[in-house]
């Protein structure tokens, strides 16, 4: 009995590995094509590349259009994160700690951007922004993206606020600290890891959002995803592969940076209580 069980569990673990590797390959496969193609010397999306070259990277960096749209995406992403993070954090504080009527309603309302189809949202935003003559404005797009990031911030921060020990605030108060001082020096520092995660979420959410951006960014306000999309409609060139590779690199370094920071902070706290008692 026991032997067969062990065999079958080994068999199922092998199966698990095969499936897992399959999924990872499926997810990575496009990358393994896109990255080599970006170093292609020809004008076509040829794979494998007949000759290696960095010409498409130069094309990307030299053309004002590409770099401008990259900058715009970065600015919109930063603004969206800068709006969504504080707003979502305050909302989370209110939702977790407050006791008032209609709390559940407000929580559901804050989660709406997750469920409303993007296309519906986009059409609505387009109508409103064109009335306000805000089509193409970086701020208008950032505001729309902040709305999308908000549910994530609220979810992440609600968890963090729930885990935060409120008696720490009480300790600060009884030591003579004002509510404001306590908030900045005790509450916020304790929420810092969650704040960083929320901001990162909100930024990435905005950075690769395209549906709303297509509607709201207008002719002169293209973000990077919009430019890639419209570029692909007229021509196919390895510059797209170069852009994708750069984006991949940027996101990977962002995530790696976060991981590194976590490892470093864990190591800093490692020398524990050596001269104890």
């Amino acid at each position: 009995m026991r032997a067969t069980k062990r065999v079958s569990s080994r068999r199922s673990s092998i199966l698990l590995w095969i499936v897992a590797i399959g999924v990872v390959l499926f997810l990575i496969a496009p990358v393994t094509i896109v990255v080599p193609v970006s170093f292609n010397s020809t004008r076509f999306l040829e794979f494998p590349p007949p000759e290696w070259s960095l010409r498409w990277y130069r094309e990307f960096l030299d053309s004002g259009g590409w770099t401008a749209s990259l900058w715009r995406s970065l600015i919109v992403g930063f603004l969206a994160a800068a709006i969504a993070t504080p707003v979502g954090t305050l909302a989370a504080l209110g939702l977790v700690r407050g006791r008032f009527r209609g709390k559940q309603l407000i929580r559901s309302a804050l989660m709406l951007p997750l469920t409303v189809p993007l296309i519906v949202l986009s059409i609505g935003l387009y109508a409103v922004y064109s009335d306000l003559r805000m089509i193409g404005s970086v701020w208008a797009l950032a505001l729309a993206h902040a709305t999308l990031g908000l549910p994530f911030v609220v979810l992440v921060m609600s968890g963090a606020v729930q885990n935060f020990d409120e008696t720490l605030e009480r300790a600060a108060w009884t030591l003579g600290a004002s509510k404001l001082r306590t908030f900045w020096q005790i509450t916020i520092p304790s929420l810092r890891p969650a704040l960083a995660a929320s901001a990162l979420f909100a930024f990435i959410m905005s950075f690769d959002e395209i549906v709303i951006a297509v509607f709201v960014s207008g002719v002169h306000g293209e973000t990077l995803p919009v430019r890639i999309f419209s570029f692909l409609q007229t021509e196919i060139s390895p510059v797209i592969a170069a852009v994708s590779t750069l984006l991949l690199l940027a996101l990977l370094s962002l995530l790696l940076g976060r991981g590194m920071a976590r490892v470093l902070s864990a190591r800093r706290s490692a020398p524990r209580a050596t001269a104890d008692r």
């Binding site: 720490l168 009480r170 300790a171 108060w173 009884t174 003579g176 600290a177 810092r192």
Partner: peptide, 18 residues
């Protein structure tokens, strides 16, 4: 509570962890 000048030490001490 911030202006009472009453010292309050509780069971788990509540030192500020950061």
């Amino acid at each position: 509570k911030a202006r009472r000048r009453v010292g309050f030490v509780v069971q788990d001490y509540l030192l500020f962890p950061h």
